[in-house]
Each structure stands twice: as structure tokens, then as C-alpha cells.
């Protein structure tokens, strides 16, 4: 029996190992350094140019952050690899659009410069969306594909995910899978980000100070859930549009509102505390005779 098991093991995992080796071979060939050493290291030497990367937001309230991060990532890849500049295909599923709004170009181009041409696809069903993603990923001349899905649809399982990953890796182009309110599930994407909201930085003043109470550079709470690292990696990244790069915000100053010294610090009203004219607690304890 042991022989049988050994024989089975020698045949089966070989194919899987080969497949995994192929997965990583495609990924290491072509990667873009994001300029974030912990993240680049965890991704195995930079963001993979070929293949699928999953970005998910756990709640639909965080959808804006997830979309913003995907777009920012696209802009960074575009800056480092101008050959991606041709066109971007954004496939937006109907339910994701209904729940999270339409991708809006004035806002996106205000956040980061985008590619020359954008094709927005509104598929009727999830199956159509997957088909369109496969077609777009396999077409030469399409720089990047963003596939947007809501939740974890049953028709997008491991097989379909592998298929998309294969197609994107063959074409040597990135495919971003944006998942709205999705659970973490096993997929073929070598890397999966979980994006949450993070307080924005403060606006800079000409004298180098910060303007209190202002909303400055957008920030993202990024967790690399799936990568080569055994443990997830959490960072707060701040987007610098002028230099087109992401900066790591030091964890100690995680709450941006308190970071830095506000230039026009106003005296704050002291929070109301246990003052003398406090209202009495409801009800009083009285020593009533026991009615036995």
C-alpha cells in the first residue's frame, strides 16, 4: 500500500509542482518595483507584470478605496512600463456598479493619470464578464484589464480563475481582479490585496507645516493577504500624485489627524467631563422596608 501511495504521489504532485513553477516563472520574469521595499520583497521582487492580481474590499463602504488603489497601481505600472499605455479595459459587472457606483473618469484622472484609451464594458451576466476579461487579457495591444466583480460568484471558481491567470500570464499583461465585498477565497492569483480605508494625510502649507482639519493625500490601508510571505503584511500607503508613487506612512503616526504639528492649532474645547452639575443617575436606592 505504501508503494501505491508513493507511486500516486510521484505522479500527481509533479504536475502541480510544474504548474506552480510555471506560475512563479511567469511572475519573476517581468516585475515592476513599486519602490516599497517590504511590499516588493513580499511580492518576490516587484509587482508581477504578467498575470492576475486580486484586490478586494471587505465592505462596500471601502469600495472607493479599493478602486482608488487599483487605479493608482495602474498608473504606477504605466509609468514604469510605457508599453502598457495603449489601452485599458475596465469590465464592470452590473451588480457592482449598482452597489458601488460607476467608475467616474473626472475623479479617476484627478487621482492619477491614466492610459490613452479606456474601454468600459458593462456585461449582462458574470459569465459574460469572465468571457470579456479572457478576451481582453488575450488581446495583444491591451495594456491592462480590470475585472470588477461583486462578492464571490459561484461561476467564478478555481478553474475559471486559473484560466484567467493563464491567459494573462501568456499575454504578459497585468489583470486586476477587483472584488467588492468579497470573502477571501482560494484563487489562482499569486497575490491578493485587502484594501481598507485609511485617514488621508493633511494638506501641506507653503512653510512646510500642515493644515489642520484638511483632507490631503489619499491613503489606503493595504494588507497583502496572499503572497510568498507566511504572514500577511499590513501597511498604510499614502498616494503622492506629483511623483506618482506610494509612500509608507509610519505606523506610529497611523492616525493622520494627529500626525505632524498643525500650523494653526486652535485651542480645543475641553471635553465635558465629570462636572459638578452632572445629572443624577436614574433612580435612587432607597431603604424600603421589606414587605414580607
Amino acid at each position: 500500500m505504501r508503494d501505491t501511495i508513493n507511486r500516486l504521489e510521484s505522479t500527481l504532485p509533479k504536475t502541480r509542482q510544474q504548474a506552480m513553477a510555471a506560475d512563479f516563472a511567469g511572475e519573476t520574469q517581468d516585475a515592476v518595483m513599486l519602490g516599497l521595499p517590504p511590499l516588493d520583497g513580499a511580492l518576490g521582487g516587484g509587482f508581477p507584470m504578467a498575470g492576475m492580481t486580486e484586490i478586494r474590499a471587505a465592505e462596500s463602504r471601502d469600495w472607493g478605496a479599493a478602486c482608488g488603489f487599483a487605479w493608482v497601481l495602474a498608473a504606477m505600472l504605466l509609468k514604469h512600463q510605457p508599453r502598457l499605455g495603449g489601452a485599458l479595459v475596465w469590465i464592470a459587472a452590473a451588480d457592482a456598479r449598482a452597489e458601488g457606483g460607476e467608475p467616474w473618469m473626472p475623479g479617476l484622472s484627478g487621482l492619477a493619470p491614466g492610459p490613452r484609451q479606456i474601454l468600459i464594458v458593462h456585461p449582462r451576466r458574470t459569465a459574460d464578464a469572465l468571457w470579456a476579461a479572457e478576451a481582453a487579457a488575450g488581446t495583444a495591444g491591451i495594456g491592462m484589464t480590470i475585472l470588477e466583480l461583486r462578492g464571490n460568484p459561484g461561476c467564478f471558481g478555481l478553474t475559471e480563475s486559473r484560466r484567467l491567470q493563464f491567459r494573462a500570464r501568456q499575454a504578459g499583461r497585468p489583470l486586476l481582479l477587483l472584488r467588492q465585498t468579497g470573502e477571501a477565497e482560494a484563487g489562482a492569483a499569486p497575490a491578493r490585496f485587502h484594501i481598507g480605508a485609511a485617514p488621508a494625510g493633511l494638506r501641506r502649507l507653503p512653510d512646510g507645516g500642515r493644515l489642520a482639519g484638511s483632507i490631503g493625500r489619499p491613503a489606503f490601508a493595504v494588507t497583502l493577504e496572499k503572497s510568498r510571505l507566511p504572514a500577511p503584511l499590513s501597511l498604510i500607503l499614502e498616494w503622492n500624485r506629483h511623483e506618482c508613487r506610494l509612500d509608507i506612512r509610519p505606523c506610529a503616526a497611523g492616525h493622520a489627524a494627529g500626525s505632524g504639528q498643525p500650523a494653526d492649532s486652535r485651542p480645543r474645547l475641553s471635553a465635558s467631563a465629570d462636572g459638578p452639575h452632572r445629572a443624577d443617575a436614574m433612580g435612587r436606592v432607597l431603604a424600603l422596608p421589606r414587605a414580607s
Partner: peptide, 14 residues
């Protein structure tokens, strides 16, 4: 993405 945004006001992505 069209002409670069000319006004300073930020716009949402969705």
C-alpha cells in the same frame, strides 16, 4: 481620461 483636471477640487472615483 481627457484633459487634465484644471480645477483644484477633488472628484470621487465612483
Amino acid at each position: 481620461p481627457g484633459p487634465a483636471i484644471t480645477h483644484a477640487a477633488a472628484r470621487p472615483v465612483r
